[in-house]
Nucleic acid binder design. Structure first.
Lengths: 224, 224
DNA sequence: ACGACTTTGGATCGACGATCCAAAGGTGCA
DNA sequence: TGCACCTTTGGATCGTCGATCCAAAGTCGT
């Protein structure tokens, strides 16, 4: 209505939901969750709000799509044919690594479950537990527990990544800081945490995660 | 500078961080996480932004304080003197119930761990596992795994509560909806989930949570 | 070639967290 | 008692966010 012919010309290549999700994933990966805004998307895709909202319902939809993208990549590589116990550890490792590489996925999964993304995981883990010989009456509790454990670690990892991203130098420095804080607590009130502080410094998140998986599998083995 | 003497008089009773945290908890409890805004706080406390920001650093600080408040209430009632296995189940139940009553706590715990609130939990669970006879080399992995499991369930519960709050009539109706969706999936691609759908309708979150704790404890028992 | 539909760019809106500042009340020293 | 200083408070304001809206630009069928 005001001044005419100032509008930038329409883009040549067509926009699509895949393109938008791809751009969103890139922004999330190198800027964290707070970096993903529709403004950032418009500038990266050099387009406007309307174009994006034409392909995406809202921000939740976009996050869900991006999460589904990452999770699909995780589950495609899984081989079911191996021994169930080993396959379960492979799936768990894959999930851990994916969430370690894309921390925002962890936060998203613990915020919006029951999505198609989680469905694949649930199906895969449930089937493997079934193959492991878990009796019918305990199968669903066991699968639920294992998925919840994975999601719990995912959430923690995402939170840690967020802390590390904002401020702190590197990972070991942050661990050292937390360990120092813990070891300075009153040993009378927090005997366990003070003891844990020494181990915290040299602990490996991935190994601890797999230890947890092993504990669960050992517990599940007692169910049969 | 503009018009004078229009300002509402200063409040008689002094404001304090406890009062603010209390109001915030009430808002969170009956409106969910999105309901807690500084605007809502000012109207409920009939005050201004400055007054609140004078006692509270920012929204994260406020949420952390509110979470700490709830968690403190949970941990005070725990008795350590009973048999460790039973005490662990009591603690787990307490956590579950607290997060069930205040879903926003679950989201907060999986978003910002290592806080004093979680420290208490970690200490309590670690000490109980120690009393249970878990060997030193496995103690910290075991405690970490259990805490992560609890946080995972907490996050899921919070997410479910959010879904239930927005829209859906009541809990069983929502479960029926999800179960219906699951049972309509292709049994060839999702055999486990389709089977799980029938159990989903009559499942109890709290019981499933405690089943997971039992699985975990059974796994722990194999470590000694 | 012309009208209907789809896709795009960007102005705009309301709500949010946060900052800022001056008024109001208290406190202590003279 | 009076006055200067500090703490506490109320509310205007700012920048940014997600989301909506609309007209321009392109595409397609006939």
């Amino acid at each position: 209505m005001a001044n005419k012919a100032q509008r930038t010309p329409r883009r040549a290549d067509g926009l699509s939901k895949e393109l938008i999700v791809k751009a969103a994933t890139e922004i999330l990966d190198d800027g964290g969750e707070t970096a993903l805004t529709f403004r950032a998307l418009t500038t990266r895709l050099s387009t406007g709000y309307g174009a994006i909202y034409h392909h995406v319902a809202n921000k939740s939809d976009l996050l869900a799509a991006a999460t589904g993208d990452v999770m699909a990549g995780v589950m495609t590589g899984v081989v079911i044919d191996t021994e169930p116990r080993e396959a379960l550890r492979t799936v768990a490792s894959g999930l851990f690594d994916a969430i370690d590489a894309h921390p925002w996925v962890g936060a998203q999964l613990s915020r919006e479950p029951w999505r198609p993304a989680l469905l694949e995981i649930y199906e895969c883990i449930g089937r493997l537990l079934d193959a492991l010989g878990v009796p019918e009456h305990a199968l669903f509790d066991a699968a639920g527990a294992l998925v919840n454990y994975v999601l719990g670690v995912a959430g923690q990892n995402a939170a840690n990544a967020r802390v590390l991203a904002s401020g702190e130098a590197d990972r070991s420095a942050h661990l050292a800081t937390v360990a120092a804080q813990w070891s300075q607590l009153d040993p009378g009130k927090y005997p366990f945490v003070v003891r844990a502080a020494t181990q915290l410094r040299e602990h490996d998140d991935r190994e601890q995660f797999l230890s947890g998986v092993d504990i669960f599998l050992a517990g599940i083995a007692t169910l049969r």
